[in-house]
Design a protein around this nucleic acid. Structure first.
Lengths: 117, 117
DNA sequence: GCCCTACATGTCGCCGCTCGATATATAGAG
DNA sequence: CTCTATATATCGAGCGGCGACATGTAGGGC
């Protein structure tokens, strides 16, 4: 089991990384688009400031979880990212792990004390 | 609605604060005991380093969510904390809020690829 | 009596991360 | 030709956790 212990800082970072990977699950997108989509899909709950987003994208690319390429089509210069195989596996695996952690967390927080409901 | 947007840093901090408040839900405890209990209750998943725990306790006391008093009984000097009314309300309210956030998060992360028409 | 470990609390500096500010550049509207 | 939205990038400030350091006590083994 993934019983390695929990790192709060890494957890916050992971949430952002996973939101990016999830946004790329179905189609390739450039950074700005990812930010817009995450905000739309979450009804404004989750949002990326660009000072946060771009460094994350660079990090993910370095780790081989996404691959970016500059689109040279006549329009604006955009760096389009696609999910790699490793990225997709990471997304699935970490989603499961995060799901287990939050489920255990909520269990502790909601535990109604000595009186079992 | 609680549609104010999401702060990752505050979220990580809140998790630690809520774990402390939850540990105090049923009985008053001193800091060291809180650390041991959280670790035990979570099977080692969540743990507090004391360099993290004590500052949090001080912060919670300043905010009036817990009240601490030095136990003078013959034993070691311990600062015993009890949950205040405000602390209990905070625990319940924030637990609900965190629950909603993680539920929306997992929804986004687990969303099976939209089947493109 | 003495040492060593577990208990118990506290502070401080480093590091990693987010965020706002700043910079640069282009497309399209008016 | 200016103004705004698009689009990417970097840097400094600030926040928060973590490891290290500091301090002191209780109790068991010898």
């Amino acid at each position: 089991m993934g019983d390695r212990d929990f790192d709060v800082q890494g957890f916050a970072r992971d949430i952002h990384e996973l939101l990016v990977l999830a946004a790329l699950r179905d189609e390739a997108k450039h950074g700005y688009q990812i930010a817009l989509d995450v905000e739309t899909d979450s009804n404004g709950l989750f949002r990326f400031r660009h000072g946060t987003l771009y460094p994350i994208l660079h990090r993910l690319e370095e780790e081989g979880l996404v691959r970016g390429s500059w689109s040279k089509g006549g329009g604006r210069r955009k760096k389009v990212y696609v999910l790699t195989g490793a990225g997709r596996r990471h997304l699935n695996g970490e989603t499961t792990r995060v799901g287990e952690i939050v489920s255990r967390l909520m269990e502790l927080l909601r535990r109604p004390g000595e009186v079992p409901a």
